[in-house]
């Protein structure tokens, strides 16, 4: 068995996020510490308002923590400017939302190629990369279709392809199956799982246990705090080894 890579792609240390001030302050996250290793898919669960989506937005650099540290591939996000954060989103982090992930004016291939093009890669090269990503995910027949001409599941899969194009190794998915039927949702999660097995790291926000079952680890949030963590698969293996 190959030694697992123990350098987390995502590491959050004592992260706090507070909205507003004084009596109206809302503590969305209170000292969260979590990490995601390469090849690992972590599910984040919790009731509404527990801070799941906030956790994901801070991890992806879409929002800034009030305090604490967030590292993506060892780079502290708090020290980065807006431009540098955008660069991180182009090269390191991919984000998948619940729905309306794709820009309606762009084809599937163009949506997937977008981060590369924004990164200064030539249009031709970016399209080649996008087509390769779509082929890898079995979506090459959707390349020239517009989002309006695709089903919800197809759009989500294209969004995953965009989240993983280029050198990105971290996928953050915020309830990616929320707007899909169960069969399509399973297909999306299967895809996400496969990408993580291939070496990417993923964090998945969900409030359905059957979706969390795809993950290696589940983190439970309540009122901005981690109340439980199922541990990693390696830890589970070692427990089992110990039990034998």
């Amino acid at each position: 068995m190959t030694a697992p890579d123990l350098h987390p792609i995502l590491r959050m240390v004592n992260v706090h996020r507070t909205h507003g001030r004084g009596d109206t302050a809302v503590h969305a996250l209170r000292g969260i510490s979590v990490h995601v290793l390469p090849g690992e898919l972590v599910a984040v669960m919790g009731p509404s308002g527990s801070g799941k989506s906030t956790l994901l937005t801070i991890a992806g650099g879409l929002d800034a923590a009030t305090s604490g540290d967030t590292f993506v591939e060892g780079v502290p996000l708090e020290s980065l400017s807006r431009r540098e954060l955008a660069k991180v989103r182009r090269r390191s982090v991919g984000y998948v939302f619940q729905d309306l992930n794709l820009i309606p004016a762009l084809t599937a291939a163009e949506n997937v190629a977008l981060p590369r093009e924004l990164d200064g890669v030539s249009a031709r090269q970016a399209r080649r990369d996008a087509l390769a990503a779509l082929v890898e995910l079995g979506l090459d027949d959707l390349a020239d279709r517009f989002p309006d001409d695709m089903s919800g599941g197809q759009q989500q899969r294209v969004a995953i392809a965009r989240a993983l194009i280029g050198p990105r190794r971290l996928v953050l998915a915020d309830e990616p199956t929320g707007a899909l039927d169960s069969e399509t949702g399973e297909a999306v999660l299967r895809l996400l799982r496969a990408r993580c097995d291939a070496g990417a790291a993923g964090m998945l926000v969900t409030h359905e246990a059957r979706h969390a079952a795809w993950a290696d680890r589940v983190v439970f949030l309540r009122d901005g705090l981690i109340v439980d963590d199922t541990g990693s698969a390696a830890e589970a293996e070692s427990l089992l080894e110990g039990a034998r």
């Binding site: 992806g60 807006r82 431009r83 955008a86 989103r89 090269r91 984000y95 939302f97 794709l102 924004l118």
Partner: peptide, 15 residues
């Protein structure tokens, strides 16, 4: 929201 998606995909303010 489309502009937000571009930003989420790594677009800067100038984009």
């Amino acid at each position: 929201r489309d502009l937000g998606l571009v930003a989420a995909a790594g677009g800067e303010a100038r984009h």
